[in-house]
Amino acid sequence: MTKKKAGDIALYVLLIALVLLFLFPIAFVVVNSFKSKLFISSNPFGIPSGESFAKFGNYTEGIEKTNFFGAFGWSAFITVGSVVMILLFTSMTAWYITRVKSKVTSCLYYMFVFSMVVPFQMVMFTMSKMADTLHLNTPWGLIILYLGFGAGLSIFMFSGFVKSIPVDIEEAALIDGCNPIKMFFVIIVPILKPTVITVAILNTMWIWNDYLLPYLTIGLSTEYKTIPVVVQYLMGSYGAKDYGALMALLVLAIIPIIIFYLCCQKYIIKGVVAGAVKG
């Protein structure tokens, strides 16, 4: 055996060990979700069998206790709605403030960039009070809040890309009498496509998993809970904690993410790399 081959085998052993280590937490939750409550704490690393095997008992309980499918629906609605609004409006704004140079537009650009650095805790209290006053404490209102709070990163990324597009095409179209709105959607949007995908993915990952914003604005009412809010609701409340239902809920919360990841893996990884280069 050559020296290089031996090295490769050692690397494979290392990588496979790491893969197992990375998959272990997921496997742990899946296995425990099929164990009855008592055995989760007494024997957390055992395989469920015989009396410790709970079938789908934890799942039915977890779904009932938290109205999981309702939460899934609201999470999906808020995520999709917000991402669509962010893509549409921030791309328009970004293109405009990059192309039209004035004091107002450059001031706006710096405000958007600044908003990326500001931690959520800085505006959390005043923003949730504002949402209450303006009756934005509904899933529809939340979409507006996400558009506002997500605008910084999205505009930064879009305008970085717009700078690299030559102005000539746009000028020619305008001279030919095309109106700017039509020109934006017919000419600019197709060019922006790679950045659209990146911005969509970064925002989806953020909004789907976000806990504090939905909790503070709509989480306290009973109907519009999102998935992170119901998970925290199940565990954060005082009293006996139901680990069986929790395990089932964690599995249910992970499944849609894994499916989304396996479907769009190529775009997600590309999006992250592109986002990092711009960032």
Partner: peptide, 21 residues
């Protein structure tokens, strides 16, 4: 036309809460 929706949302979600904060 190009900036109003973003600006309104940005004002509600960020600028006003920030200044007020």
């Amino acid at each position: 036309v190009f900036t109003l929706p973003t600006l309104i949302a940005f004002a509600i979600a960020f600028v006003l809460p920030f200044v007020f904060g």
